[in-house]
Every structure is written in structure tokens, then in C-alpha cells.
């Protein structure tokens, strides 16, 4: 555990909690892509199957349980509790265009051809593109609430910090995982455009951040 890894995890946790609280307090999931949230729930479920087979640390187990729990709670709020506020017409990204190629890639390129490893690899690849329905929705409506941009910023920052964590681990532990690094790079790049807008436009107009 190094400082980048820890701040990355905390940034990820902050993003998840910001989104849950935003929906809960405003009693609305307007502007939030339910499809992205389902993808994240799938990501956590397929990656954390090792909860059933092995114990790594109390920190590891509790964070995994919190992430999974929050992901399903978010999906529940969007599709059940506040379903009336869900903007399905604007959430029109075709997720099969992500899930099918990512599934194929996980079967082709993985560390070990076993069910657990393929599902782990699938979750890594899927996470890297899971935010696309959300970004697509924002570009379609042309705006995002400030709190939604904070959520996206924390979520993007998390993987960027993980990149620094992997550089650290490579130098100090000789640890190198090309699958995670490649997917993490793709994931971070997808947020770059948003990072730029968040920093440049976020300060001037506190109400809303427009995306092209």
C-alpha cells in the first residue's frame, strides 16, 4: 500500500458516495446514466468474486463489500426508488457495443484461462469504458450539474492515481500488470477532456459545466 493507491481508493470511495448522496438528497437521478451504474455494478461483481475464495486483508474485504453494496444501492435508487426521475430517453448508449467486445477481449487476452481470471480481466476492461454511457448522456443533453461533475472528477482521479501507484509498484516492488495498466491508461484518457473542462470552466460557472 502506497500513498497513491490509498488516495486512489479514497477518491473512488468519495465518487461513489457523492453520487449516492446526490441522488438520495435531491430524491432524483436526473442527469445520471443508469446504464453506467449497472456496468459498474457488473464490474464490481465480476472482479470481487475472490471475496468468496480468499482473504487478503480486512481493508481489502471491507472496501470491496462497500463498493459492491454502494453500486447496487445506486442501481436500486435509479431503477426502483426514483425511477420516475430517471431520464431514460437521454440514456441511449448501446451498452452491448461495450460488453460484447470487452467480453471477447477478456477471453482472448488474460493472465490465465480460468473462469475467475477471465471474469477479473473482463471487469478490468469493462471498468475502463463503463463511464461512456454517462459521458454520452452529458454530451447529448449538453450539461451536467456541478455535483455530477464532482462525481466524475473523483472517479477519473481515482484511476489516474492508480497509474502513479503502478509506477511506484514497478520501481519499488517490481510489480507489473500490463492488463491493468493498459486498461487504466484507456480509462484515464477518456476523462482527459472532462478534466480540462472541469478545471477551466468549473471555476467560472459554478452552476453547470457544459460539454461539447
Amino acid at each position: 500500500m502506497n500513498v497513491f493507491r490509498l488516495t486512489g481508493d479514497l477518491s473512488h470511495l468519495a465518487a461513489i458516495i457523492i453520487l449516492l448522496l446526490k441522488i438520495w438528497k435531491s430524491r432524483s437521478c436526473a442527469g445520471i446514466s443508469g446504464k453506467s451504474q449497472i456496468l459498474f455494478a457488473v464490474v464490481f461483481t465480476t472482479r470481487y468474486l475472490d471475496l468468496l475464495t480468499s482473504f487478503i486483508s480486512l481493508y481489502n474485504t471491507s472496501m470491496k463489500l462497500i463498493y459492491i453494496g454502494c453500486a447496487y444501492a445506486t442501481v436500486y435508487l435509479i431503477y426502483v426508488k426514483f425511477r420516475a426521475t430517471y431520464d431514460g430517453n437521454h440514456d441511449s448508449f448501446r451498452v452491448e457495443f461495450l460488453v460484447v467486445p470487452v467480453g471477447g477481449l477478456a477471453v482472448l487476452i488474460n493472465h490465465n484461462f480460468s473462469l475467475m481470471e477471465i471474469l477479473w480481466t473482463f471487469s478490468i476492461y469493462l471498468e475502463s469504458v463503463a463511464i461512456l454511457p454517462q459521458l454520452f448522456m452529458i454530451s447529448k443533453t449538453g450539461e451536467a450539474e456541478t455535483i455530477t461533475t464532482h462525481y466524475l472528477f473523483c472517479l477519473g482521479l481515482y484511476r489516474a492515481l492508480y497509474l502513479l501507484n503502478w509506477i511506484w509498484r514497478y520501481y519499488f516492488e517490481g510489480f507489473l500488470d500490463m492488463i491493468a495498466i493498459f486498461a487504466g491508461l484507456v480509462q484515464t484518457v477518456l476523462y482527459c477532456d472532462f478534466f480540462y473542462l472541469y478545471v477551466t470552466k468549473g471555476g467560472k460557472d459554478r452552476k453547470k459545466v457544459m460539454l461539447p
Binding site: 473512488h12 475464495t53 487478503i56 472496501m63 510489480f175
Partner: peptide
Amino acid sequence: SQVPLRHDEL
């Protein structure tokens, strides 16, 4: 069972 090191990460 033996878990790969990378599974330590979230």
C-alpha cells in the same frame, strides 16, 4: 487458495 498479487488492488 493462492491469489495473484494484483487481486490485492481494488
